[in-house]
Structures are given as C-alpha cells and as structure tokens.
Design a binder for these strands. Structure first.
Lengths: 204, 204
DNA sequence: AATATATTTGAACACTGTTCAATAAACCAA
DNA sequence: TTGGTTTATTGAACAGTGTTCAAATATATT
C-alpha cells in the first residue's frame, strides 16, 4: 500500500503545515491576529481546508498549548540534577517564571486562555499536560515535606498553594495589574515577591 | 437654564441606561454575549447611539469593572471592625475569595480581562480602583509586620506575594486549571490551600 | 413658521468562526 | 487511454463582531 502511505503522509504534512503557520502567527502576532483566514492565507489554502484537518479553532490552539508544555518540560529537565528537594523547588519556580516572561503569549494560552480547556471539555478529555506538570511539582513538594518543610500541612493543598503563588505573580503581570506596586519594574516585583515567598517557607 | 439642565439629565439618564443594560447582559450572559448590538437591542436604540455616550466597548467594560470594585469595597468595609492586623488579613482573604466565587465574571473583568486595562492605557489613566485595593492590603500587611509577621521581609514584595497567592488560587479555578488537583472540589481546594498559606505565615 | 441645533439612525466597512454544495484533482479498473 | 469513483479543495454564504458616518429625525430657538 505505497500509495495510501504517501497519501497518509501528505495528510499529516498539510496538518503540520497548518499547525506550523498557526504557531508562527500566534508567536509573532498574538492570538488575536491568528484567525482561520490568516492561517489559510499564510499557507495559501482556502479557509475551508483547515476544517478538514482540525475540527475547530480551539483544537488548533489546544495543540499549540501542548507544544508549549513540551517546551516548558524541556526547560524543567535540568531539575533532575538538583537532588535537594527545596533547592529543586526554588529552581523550578525560577524556571517557571522565566518561561512565563520569555513566552508571555504561550503562558497565557497554557494557563489563562479558555480555548485549550474548552477543547478538552468538548472531547471529554483529561488535561494530561497540566497533570504531568502538577505531578512533578507535587513530587518536589513531597520531598520538601520529608525534609521538614511545610510542617503539619497537607500535600495536595500545599502543592496547589505553591503553584497559585507563582501563577498569581506571573498573571498579575501578564494582565497588567502590577501598576499599583511601588518602586519596582514588573520584572523586579515578581522576583522580589518570589524571594519573599521562599523566605516564608524557609523561616519555619 | 432649566431646559439645558433637563437635556443634561436626559443625557446622563440614557448613558446610565446603556450601562445598566450592559451590566445586566454581562452578569446574566457573560462578556461574550454582551455585544454593542445586544446592548442596543436591550434598550431599543440603534448601535450607533451607544457611541455617542461611550467612546468604545472597552470604556463600557471599564465602567462595569469600576462598579465591581465598589461592590468589593462594600464587602471589605466590615474589615474596619477587625483590629488585629493578622485577623484582618485572614478575613480579607476570605472576603476576596468569596467575592471571586460569587462573582466569577466580575472578578474576571476586574483582574484578568484586558478590556479595562486597555481603556486606561488609551486614556493614559491610572488604575485607581486597583491602587486603592492594593493600598488597603499593604496597610494590613504592614500591621502584620509590626506584630512580627513576615520577619525580615520587604513590605511591597510581601504585599504583592499575598495578593498573588490568593489571585492565583482563584484564577486557576476560574480558568479551569484545577482538574489536576486530587480529591477535592474546586471550591474545597482553594479553601484548603488558603489555609495552607495562612499556616505558612503563622508558623514563623 | 422657519431656522438652527442636537440626537438618532441604519447602512456600510472590515473583520470573525464555521458550513457545505460545487469544483478540481487524483486514483483505479477496463 | 478512457470512464468512473473517490478524495481534496474551494469559495461563497451565514450569522455574528466593533466601529464609523452621512442622512434623517426630533427638539429648541428666533
């Protein structure tokens, strides 16, 4: 079946061409400028074609969001080298914040935008990407607890709290709610408040 | 000038009629269904009329966002009765979380959506509503520090960190990122992690 | 009553996501 | 090579979006 193999290959090629164009537009011009028609223009196909490779716009953004998690995962890979759990937690926070600042639109898509979650809801799927990332964090927090941090606390609640703290800092920035903070650039205030959070955990 | 007085009154009346209809649509059907045409339909005027009372859609949502801050402010008023700064901080957090859960769309508009911030940017205005709220929080955190909490920390960084933690918990919920947390309803996990945060501050 | 001012209208512009009948291309058997 | 079948692609159409603006209407003043 050499012919049907090629056809299969061509189908996945056009699919990834659409995805590549969508991601390029998304990263260069933001989610607002990434319309179906703009993607179609970029690859010189008609808008209708896109709907033979993706069920809707949300599914395209869900795939881009997944690529975002792969990129974040790569950056987190270095954490394997950090044996001390609390050092690993600190390093993880720094990588997370750095990723958010260097990939604002991608972070937005991964953790704020509705599109990827709407897609999962429609497909009745789990949020595997988020789950895997949360599991890594949970494991690190558990290591910290075994070393005496977060004394008398519940693992799941602490893990979510740690995530929330960092996510909060980042998103208040991304959505321009940091104007109210004195004497710091948006970048500085996030790093200062992250240090502040770490101090809080250390000083138990 | 009785006539021009009445005309002035009629102008502000139509203006607030637009705003009232916009807020009703916003609260009942969400921001997506609140289009200029839907607002115009609701008050039985043509879409063009709205642009004689508001410069654009963002300015309407900015005004609704301001009403949201007034409502949050009212709920925060009871905090004057709590003299102990740390008790006040805890109570403030609970009111903030309760407000977010009971007014999800409004919280979204106040702290996540771009619209109100885009309006301020265009008008070259300060975010007075956010500023006032942050000032109240800063004052409470300062009180806590004077009582020995957040030892050796910087006021501005701690205040932002506290806000971030609570904002993070709330927004991960509102944007459906809590599926990854085990054995809790979205509501429960937020309260558990808020308690977890409070414990962290207490156990210094 | 005629003029001047203020208000309101709704069509038009340039977009959006999505659908679908029609067209074009590719493939396969005779 | 021809004819028929399957597959891929098209682009117009639908129902919506924010926004603008000349024209029509309503109100007020002389």
């Amino acid at each position: 079946m050499g012919i049907s193999d090629r056809k299969e290959r061509e189908k996945t090629e056009l699919r990834s061409l659409i995805l590549k164009a969508a991601k390029k537009l998304f990263l260069e011009q933001g989610i607002e400028k990434t319309s179906i028609r703009n993607i179609a223009d970029a690859i010189e196909y008609s808008p209708g074609t896109i709907y033979h490779y993706f069920q809707d716009k949300d599914s395209i953004f869900h795939e881009i969001h997944t690529e975002g998690f792969q990129e974040l995962g790569k950056k987190m890979a270095v954490l394997h080298e950090v044996e001390n759990p609390f050092e690993r937690l600190k390093a993880m926070g720094k990588i997370y914040i750095k990723f958010a600042f260097e990939n604002t639109d991608m972070y937005d898509l991964m953790f704020i935008k509705q599109a990827p979650m709407d897609f999962l809801e429609k497909m009745d799927c789990e949020w595997d990407e988020g789950q895997a990332t949360f599991d890594v964090l949970r494991h690190t927090v558990q290591g910290c607890m075994e070393q005496g941090y977060f004394k008398g606390q519940e693992l799941e609640a602490v893990t979510f709290m740690v995530w929330s703290a960092v996510h909060g800092m980042v998103t208040l920035n991304l959505r321009h709610r940091c104007k109210v903070v004195n004497a710091h650039t948006p970048d500085e205030i996030v790093h200062a408040s992250f240090q502040s959070f770490i101090k809080l955990v250390e000083q138990q």
